[in-house]
Design a protein around this nucleic acid. Structure first.
Length: 139
DNA sequence: GCCAACGTTGGC
DNA sequence: GCCAACGTTGGC
C-alpha cells in the first residue's frame, strides 16, 4: 500500500463534504496537471491519502482511501485527464497545520513543502507515520 | 491583495 | 527548440 496527499480548497470541496458522501465516496476530478494526474494513475485500491485543506485552512484534516483506480475524469471530454475515487476513512483528532509540518524536522522533505503547488503528491511511509502521530490517529 | 513559483501557450 | 508572455495556485 502506498501513501499520498491530496489537496482541496475547503470552500470548494471539504473534508466534511467527503464524509457526507459516505461509502460512495467522491471522484477526485478537476485535476489538470500532468504530474498530479500521473500520481493518480499510480494509485491502487486501498491506498491511503491525507486530505489537505489548502488556502484558508492549510491543514491535514483526515485520511481517505482510494476506492476506484484511475478512470476518465467525468468533468471533461479531454481524454488526457484521469482521476481516482476516494472515500473518507478517519478524521484527525488534531488537524496538522502547515506550520506544524514546517516545524517538524522529520517532515522537511515533504512534497507539501518542496512543491507547494502540486495538488496530488506522494508521502513516504515515515512521513505518514509522523503526520498520523501528530494528528492523533494510528498510522 | 500581493507575490513567488511554476505550468502552459504561442511566436519565432 | 527556445523563450517571453501569460495564467494559476497557494502561502502570507
Amino acid at each position: 500500500m502506498r501513501f499520498w496527499l491530496m489537496k482541496s480548497e475547503p470552500e470548494v470541496f471539504s473534508w466534511t463534504d467527503l464524509v457526507a458522501r459516505g461509502e460512495t465516496g467522491e471522484e477526485w476530478d478537476g485535476v489538470r496537471n500532468y504530474q498530479a494526474r500521473n500520481y493518480m494513475r499510480e494509485m491502487k485500491l486501498g491506498d491511503r491519502a491525507f486530505f489537505y485543506h489548502s488556502q484558508s485552512d492549510k491543514a491535514v484534516v483526515g485520511i481517505c482511501e482510494v476506492i476506484a483506480a484511475a478512470h476518465p475524469d467525468s468533468t471533461t471530454d479531454d481524454p488526457r485527464w484521469d482521476c481516482v475515487d476516494v472515500r473518507a476513512r478517519q478524521a484527525f483528532e488534531t488537524p496538522v497545520t502547515l506550520a506544524m509540518v514546517k516545524a517538524e524536522p522529520g517532515l522537511a522533505e515533504m512534497a507539501l513543502l518542496r512543491q507547494s503547488r502540486l495538488s496530488v503528491q506522494p508521502v513516504t511511509t515515515e512521513e505518514w507515520r509522523i503526520v498520523c502521530t501528530m494528528g492523533g490517529v494510528d498510522p
